[in-house]
Write a protein that binds this DNA or RNA. Structure first.
Lengths: 190, 190
DNA sequence: TTAATTTCTTAAACTAGTTTAAGGAGCGTA
DNA sequence: TACGCTCCTTAAACTAGTTTAAGAAATTAA
């Protein structure tokens, strides 16, 4: 259950058995059926999710009710519903399971608590966010530099496994184009 | 010299006089003339910059030699040249002073060193990157949800001071449109 | 002051990507 | 097996934003 997440943390910081215990105590395991939404117990809050099995997509819904995919997270990846008030205050991102999925949830307040108890986690999450920041910037750059076709080619090269598992419409949304246009792009390449 | 940056750090963590000393010892002050590039002493590396006075833009240059602005940083803001290998490995972002500018530079290796010496900085930079990650995600969302016109309106509302100080072509690049098109957008609104 | 250079504006031709629409393919359910 | 549903594909009409070009305005330098 916790093997993968502990290995993930161990990439950056070495934990004692007691610290591992303190960590896993905070995590809420959740099983989410295909197409179901992730949500920790209690009122809606900010949280992180670590995907143990399956695949999750992070998305927003705009004023016209259209969804925009911001990220995918297969096994071993972190994801979060963090966002800031683009339209409404307390606007959270939604996380949906694209397959039968097993996740470990950590609310932001639990994260803060954990960092106070075990300062090593300040380091771990500093590096995690530092990396997330870098990836988000890379995607901004890609959108500025590359045509839709080049972005799709890059996506296929970078995430071949996702390309197989994830519906075309979600990939299109992630790339910032319509499903129809992605379909024509695919047609061209054959 | 260090008043502003210490106030900035104090928003998240309380430092002792000795810790303040350890922090400011690592910082490299640099004066950069208008249009000059920021760069810490030594070989090119990743670094953070805190703007004490003036204004900085962060940008990349693509294969065709065209620049794309990723961020602006006026007084009191942090900025960095972090990026990951979109095209070449060791591809850093460039930071340019848009006015006569005073910055404090902190190399990534110095940051790591500082975190080891004073663990409070793990917390500070964790929160700083967490926030940067959030802002980058917000910009990705804005680009998906909003038309160029709406993005420009939002930029003007959000950063009225920048709108006055920064050249139109840089704002256009930041918004992801051509200067010509931004110019027509401006014309329309009058 | 003039001259050189960069930046901004305007407008017309163009194109990457959208919209709309309709048909087909797959898939879960009864 | 057929029904309903969502997803994917194709194609034609359309549009937001680009490209090209040329002139006006603002900066910079001498």
């Amino acid at each position: 259950m916790y093997t993968a997440i502990l290995a993930n943390v161990a990439r950056y910081v070495a934990l004692t058995a007691a610290e591992q215990q303190a960590f896993t105590n905070q995590l809420q395991p959740q099983h989410v059926a295909r197409h179901g939404l992730l949500q920790p117990a209690g009122p809606p809050v900010r949280y992180l999710a670590f995907v143990v099995r399956g695949c999750v997509r992070t998305y927003t819904t705009d004023a016209r009710g259209r969804e925009h995919v911001l990220a995918f997270a297969p096994e071993g990846w972190w994801s979060s519903n963090f966002t800031s008030a683009l339209s409404a205050p307390r606007a959270y991102l939604s996380l949906q399971a694209l397959e039968d999925t097993e996740v470990l949830l950590l609310r932001l307040d639990q994260l803060e608590e954990l960092c106070l108890q075990v300062p090593k986690f300040e380091r771990f999450f500093r590096l995690l966010f530092q990396n997330g920041y870098l990836l988000a910037q890379r995607r901004l750059t890609a959108r500025a530099h590359l045509s839709a076709e080049a972005r799709y080619a890059r996506f296929c090269r970078h995430y071949p496994q996702l390309h197989q598992r994830v519906a075309l419409k979600h990939i299109a949304s992630f790339l910032g184009i319509t499903p129809e246009f992605l379909s024509t792009l695919r047609g061209r390449q054959v």
